[in-house]
């Protein structure tokens, strides 16, 4: 059982930092808008961050031994292919997850 105090601290720390990141820049919008470097980062960072976060999720994936990594790799391909083909975020997310869950609980248990 995870200590409730630790969980509460986690929620408050994460929530506080998230709120600060959203609220504090609103107080300085004008100077931020004037900076060309900030405008550039605002355009380029979101796509970059998402790619980094995908890799973060896959950080423990051991691609040197194929069989434990196989369900994730298959699910990844399902999600990517569906998103490129159908452009339906919810469909891509749940189809990929379903494939991963089914493979892990039946054919290819980790």
């Amino acid at each position: 059982m995870i200590d409730p105090g630790y969980l509460l601290a986690t929620v408050l720390v994460a929530g506080g930092i998230t709120f600060a990141l959203r609220a504090v820049p609103l107080l300085a919008v004008a100077p931020l808008r004037r900076s060309a470097a900030v405008r550039y980062l605002a355009e380029e960072l979101p796509a970059g961050i998402m790619i980094v976060l995908v890799l973060y999720c896959l950080r423990d994936l051991d691609v040197t031994t194929l069989s434990p990594a196989l369900p994730t790799l298959i699910a990844l391909n399902v999600t990517i292919a569906l998103q490129l083909w159908k452009h339906n975020a919810l469909l891509s997310i749940f189809a990929g997850t379903a494939v991963n869950v089914v493979l892990l609980s039946t054919a290819l248990p980790a």
Partner: peptide, 24 residues
């Protein structure tokens, strides 16, 4: 208990990355 359910997050980021890339 659904093993591999945490893939939801990976898939979410994959979709967001594809859409963010497509925009620019």
């Amino acid at each position: 208990h659904l093993p591999g359910l945490e893939f939801t997050l990976t898939a979410l980021f994959v979709v967001l990355a594809i859409e963010a890339f497509r925009a620019r």
